[in-house]
Amino acid sequence: MAKYSLKINGKTQLIDVDPSTPILWVLRDHLNMPGTKFGCGMAMCGACTVHLDGTAVRSCSLPVSAVGKQAITTIEGLSANGTHPVQKAWLEHDVAQCGYCQAGQIMSAAALLKDNPNPSDEDIDNYMSGNICRCGTYLRIKEAIKAAAKK
């Protein structure tokens, strides 16, 4: 076990866990922040996507020991009250079906738009291909990303 001081959604969080513990489980089990979802445990589905200093990363494969001083943003901290343009676009396009993968989709989409404020369809396809949605809401996700880009 080791002690870590993590910057998560603008707050400092102190935890004492095994250094190999992925951020996903630090969030879900130790900090009671279940918005970040477990999907595959091997960075293949994107359900656990969070931002590390603004870059999208798969938290299931990111050990707590590798974070250091980098700031973590989760779906709970993306905006104060769901007011991020991506979240608003998700509501406008009624994107979700089961909704389980959507936190990860939103975090990927927000990171994409930060790097590329006006992505083409191809840019969206390429960037978002790491996020699986079994319900098949990909077309709505794309429309929502394009709408968010215009905001």
């Binding site: 279940p34 918005g35 779906i75 979700a96 909704g99």
Partner: peptide, 23 residues
């Protein structure tokens, strides 16, 4: 008349809704 998914605001903000979120 189309109505938005009643849980969507919770989904997009990461509120606990799913069984796996039980604490």
């Amino acid at each position: 008349k189309s109505q938005g998914n009643v849980d969507l605001a919770k989904i997009v903000t990461g509120k606990p809704l799913f069984g796996i979120d039980t604490q």
